[in-house]
C-alpha cells in the first residue's frame, strides 16, 4: 500500500476506538495526498487537542501537536514564514469551534491558504463524552443527562459568513466523495474548510442510542444527500453534502508578499 509511505507505522495499531470514524478520515486524507502526488516533506500538519488531534502523530509529514484550539494559529505562523508548504489542519468539532472558535473565524476571514478539516463527531470523546457546540439540541451527553438545549453551529454557514473561499461537507460513509473533496480542498488557493461527519460509537453513539459504528454510518447514508440532488430538494430535512463554496479571493500570503515588496521599494 503506497499510503503506508505516509504513515508512522511504529505507532500502529492507533489509539482510536474500534469503529471510530477518525481512522477513516486519516485513511481518506492520505489517499487524497497520495492521488495528488504530494511530497511528504512539503506537508505540515498541525493539530490541537482531542481524539482528532492525535492524527498528526500518525502521519509521516512535518507535524505539530499544539495546544487546544490553537492549531490554526500555529498553522498561520508556519504558512506565513514558509508559504510554499502545504498546511493541513485537522481539528475536532470542539477544538475547532469552541476552544478555537475565534482562531477559526479569523483564519477564514484572512483567507490564508490552509486546509482546515473539522472532524465532527458532535462530542468531546477524549475527556469522556461532554456535549460540544456541534451536538445540537435534544442530544444526550455526560454533561447533559437530561438532553442538551444548546443549538449547534452550522459549520458550512459559519465558514461561508467568515469568508472561507472553499467550503465542503462530507461523511465517513461517503469515502470516495471525501477523497475527491480533500483533493479539491488541498489544491484550492485560500482557506478551505471541509466538515467531515465522523462517528463516535463509544460516547455519542452509545448515549444517543445510535448503535455501533455500522449503524452510525447507515445514519449518515440515510440522512444526507448531495447538494443539487433531487433528494435534497424534495426533502429539506436531509443534510446537504458536497461543495458549497469554491471561489477565488485574494490569498493572505500573496497579499502579504505584496506589502513586503512595497515596503522594500520605499526603503530602497
Amino acid at each position: 500500500m503506497a499510503i503506508k509511505d505516509y504513515l508512522r507505522e511504529r505507532f500502529f495499531p492507533h489509539m482510536w476506538c474500534p469503529g471510530c470514524g477518525h481512522g477513516t478520515v486519516l485513511n481518506t486524507l492520505l489517499r487524497a495526498v497520495e492521488d495528488l502526488g504530494l511530497n511528504k516533506n512539503d506537508i505540515v500538519m498541525t493539530s490541537g487537542i482531542g481524539c482528532s488531534a492525535r492524527i498528526s502523530g500518525y502521519v509521516d509529514f512535518h507535524s505539530l501537536h499544539t495546544i487546544h484550539g490553537r492549531a490554526l494559529a500555529f498553522a498561520t505562523g508556519v504558512k506565513l514564514s514558509r508559504p510554499e508548504l502545504t498546511l493541513l489542519v485537522p481539528m475536532g468539532d470542539g477544538d475547532a469551534l469552541a476552544i478555537g472558535g475565534n482562531h477559526f473565524i479569523h483564519a477564514a476571514r484572512r483567507n490564508i491558504d490552509i486546509t482546515a478539516i473539522v472532524m465532527n463527531n458532535r462530542i468531546y470523546g477524549m475527556t469522556g463524552g461532554q456535549y460540544s457546540p456541534l451536538s445540537g439540541p435534544g442530544k444526550k451527553a455526560t454533561t447533559a443527562p437530561y438532553k442538551t438545549i444548546d443549538n449547534q453551529f452550522d459549520v458550512v454557514e459559519l465558514s461561508k459568513a467568515a469568508g472561507a473561499s472553499f467550503v465542503a461537507r462530507t461523511t465517513t460513509y461517503h469515502v470516495q466523495e471525501a477523497i475527491e473533496i480533500f483533493k479539491k480542498a488541498i489544491t484550492h488557493k485560500g482557506f478551505s474548510v471541509v466538515e467531515i461527519l465522523t462517528q463516535c460509537p463509544t460516547h455519542y453513539g452509545r448515549k444517543n442510542k445510535e448503535g455501533d459504528a455500522v449503524n452510525m454510518l447507515e445514519i449518515y447514508r440515510d440522512t444526507t444527500a448531495k447538494v443539487g440532488s433531487k433528494a435534497l430538494t424534495e426533502n429539506p430535512a436531509l443534510l446537504g453534502r458536497g461543495i458549497f463554496v469554491d471561489k477565488d479571493t485574494p490569498e493572505y500570503c500573496e497579499e502579504y508578499e505584496k506589502i513586503i515588496q512595497l515596503a522594500m521599494r520605499e526603503v530602497a
Binding site: M1, P13, G19, G23, N27, T28, V175, I179, A213, L217
Partner: peptide, 8 residues
C-alpha cells in the same frame, strides 16, 4: 480498504 478505520 477505503472505509477501514484501522487501515488494516
Amino acid at each position: 480498504e477505503l472505509r477501514c478505520p484501522d487501515l488494516a
